[in-house]
């Protein structure tokens, strides 16, 4: 194992090391090695090459768009989708490469729907388009076991819902909208977690968890906060109930798996909610500013103290 940057720094100050010695030690231990540079250069050139070439092709079709026959437009997109999926099924690539290609195919399906809508002027709402897209890639998402695709599906589901609200005009207040968004994001995560624990799905990467967790927490916090400023209608109480339950559950979960991220995000969320309570209930603006400023400072300090205490306890014990 190599020395770390910090270790080299420390021994250079407690031993005899000239600048040149430090430099060569850093080069041997810390900095990117020749094999890493080779990998970097290859990946860099390949990404730029593929990226520029495909955008060149796309721009070319975009330029000629009006003069192309509709058969060519749709046929082209369909051929592309079929080709990419065939590559995934029959190609002899590694799994990550196949997954990346499938991701491309899933995005192409969306483009196909867009082209279709444009050619036939179906008069459908935008949410129809997103609903179709969501439904048609669902099967791939389920069989692929690829987290980036899960995330795409979640984004699509939420977008479909938002567009539906916007265009069909359901009479929902902001609280209910945020609440439904929370359920649409949090429920799949809970489900995936269960499937992961009984080993039906092989991986549930940390980055995916964190992104979805932060998004869900943002939605539920926004539901509670918008209720504070909206004279607290009845839906606010259900939001408050769901928020308390899920905060409690996340907190408890954080303590069982011993990950300080969970208590930390719950506290951050609580600080935001309580600040809004102070803003709503104090009448004078001077007093509000002073109170919130002091509250944020003290609460963040206490939260950090508590988190670091937990971290020490959990790593030592």
């Amino acid at each position: 194992m190599a020395l770390s940057r910090e270790e080299i720094h420390i021994i250079s100050h407690h031993g005899k090391m000239e600048k040149e010695a430090i430099r060569s030690s850093m080069r041997r231990n810390v900095y990117a090695r020749p094999d890493q540079w080779k990998k970097f250069v290859k990946l860099f050139l390949l990404t730029l090459g593929v990226g520029f070439t495909t955008s060149g092709i796309l721009f070319f079709f975009a330029f000629n768009w009006d003069s192309l026959h509709k058969l060519i437009k749709i046929g082209l997109m369909e051929t592309l989708v079929t080709l990419t999926v065939a590559l995934v099924i029959f190609g002899k690539f590694s799994l990550p490469v196949k997954n990346t290609i499938l991701m491309g195919a899933a995005i192409l399906v969306g483009t196909l729907f867009a082209v279709y809508g444009q050619v036939y002027q179906t008069g459908a709402n935008a949410y129809d388009f997103f609903l179709g897209w969501t439904l048609f890639i669902s099967l791939w998402v389920i069989v692929s076991n690829f987290p980036a695709l899960w995330l795409l599906l979640l984004v699509l589901i939420n977008t479909t819902f938002l567009l539906y609200i916007d265009q069909v005009g359901l009479d929902l207040d902001a609280i209910s909208v945020f609440l439904i968004l929370f359920i649409l994001t949090a429920l799949p995560l809970v489900l995936l977690n269960v499937l992961f624990n009984v080993s039906i799905i092989p991986v549930l990467p940390v980055w995916f968890r964190r992104v979805v967790e932060l998004a869900s927490l943002f939605f539920i916090t926004s539901a509670v906060i918008s209720g504070i400023f909206e004279a607290r209608p009845s839906s606010w109480y259900s939001a408050l109930f769901i928020a308390s339950c899920s905060f409690g559950a996340i907190f408890f979960y954080g303590f069982t798996v011993r990950i300080i991220f969970y208590p930390a995000i719950i506290f951050t969320s609580l600080i935001a909610i309580l600040s809004c309570v102070i803003i709503e209930f104090s009448n004078e603006i001077e007093l509000t500013l002073l109170l919130v400023s002091i509250f944020v400072m003290i609460s963040v300090t206490l939260v950090i103290k508590f988190i670091l205490f937990l971290q020490r306890k959990w790593t030592d014990g």
């Binding site: 520029f52 070439t53 495909t54 060149g56 092709i57 796309l58 070319f60 330029f63």
Partner: peptide, 8 residues
């Protein structure tokens, strides 16, 4: 499109 394609 030509610029992008050529650089690609």
């Amino acid at each position: 499109s030509a610029i992008l394609f050529v650089s690609g």
